[in-house]
Design a protein around this nucleic acid. Structure first.
Lengths: 174, 174
DNA sequence: TACTATTTTCGAAATGGCCTGAAATAGTAT
DNA sequence: ATACTATTTCAGGCCATTTCGAAAATAGTA
């Protein structure tokens, strides 16, 4: 009997959806959302809500909400086929665009609010001879600096195109 | 009546702990863990379990587990004071070291396993004329490339010291 | 060895996030 | 209008994760 040294396509798809789902859930994107995204990423054609429901075994309500969320994240779009009433969904396939889009959302949800708080906390005044204040102030200042640097880096990444970005980065990092 | 234009220290601490907690929970670190970390970050002296419990209003069990987790993440260390039996805990204060430590953990938990899966999935064979296979293969290949680049970047960052890292990065990104 | 201070463990309870299913709404053709 | 299909909403239930609290284990001391 012939052993399968390589994976079947169907098995591969399954594995990818599962892994992408797990990865997503460690990233603040919930598992189902990441799985639907994975499914659409590897689909050659747009899919209907119905197909998403079947392939992932999720309810209509869930599929609908999840697809809406993905659209809000800018990762998925609707498409209408002429003569049909059903909506079709497809994912942005350029993975660099996907990465930037995710970075953009996360910046908006995490980094920006944190910067706002750090600005406020930087304004807290006190006596440097007070150990409590000195320790607080130093931490806030340092974190603020790191956050601002991250912000600048993000901003640039969001504007850059893939080849330029990795070209510059990897040149330094080799 | 005089309005407070700047925040009180106590209020600032509170706000920082809260924000750091929220940020943490969007990062796969649970809220309590991030809050304990925040508390220790701004504390001028090491704290006991007891003090952590009081200041954050959490149970002994929770405090104990959380501190252990933080130690496992390499963010907190134990200290013994001579003549005392109690254990004191303090956080790594160098924020760049903290950032690298977090990056190291996340790489281990997320990027490395994903790279492993992508290697397997890259080995799936098929006919490029089969639309299903072609779409799958292209996505996997692209993601694999992105993941490998991220991996290289991480590796370098983990070795670099702060000034070198931001010096090089911000030079490009300005 | 007994006593006390401290830490660790772990089952149970609480919390919060996710998903379902069914009803409401919207859209289209006859 | 009416019937039919597709989409959206949301209250309620479910499940995983987090937290509590008290008991057990451990470590230090006399």
């Amino acid at each position: 009997m012939l052993l399968h040294l390589t994976m079947e396509l169907a098995e591969g798809k399954q594995k990818f959806i599962e892994s992408w789902g797990r990865l997503g859930s460690e990233w603040g994107v919930n598992r189902t959302m990441a799985q639907v995204h994975a499914l659409l990423l590897i689909a050659p054609e747009p899919l209907t809500t119905e197909e998403v429901m079947e392939q992932l075994n999720i309810s209509r309500g869930n599929a609908n909400m999840t697809l809406r969320d993905l659209i809000n994240w800018g990762l998925v779009e609707k498409q209408h086929k002429p003569g049909e009433r059903k909506e079709y969904f497809f994912a942005e396939k350029d993975i660099w665009t996907v990465a930037r889009q995710v970075a953009r959302e996360r910046k908006k949800r995490e980094l920006d609010p944190m910067l706002k708080v750090l600005n406020e906390l930087s304004a807290v005044e006190g006596d440097q001879n007070d150990k409590e204040f000195a320790a607080f102030n130093k931490s806030i200042t340092d974190i603020h600096k790191l956050a601002r640097n991250s912000d600048k880096m993000m901003e640039t990444m969001l504007k850059a195109d893939e080849s330029w970005f990795w070209g510059s980065i990897l040149k330094i990092f080799k």
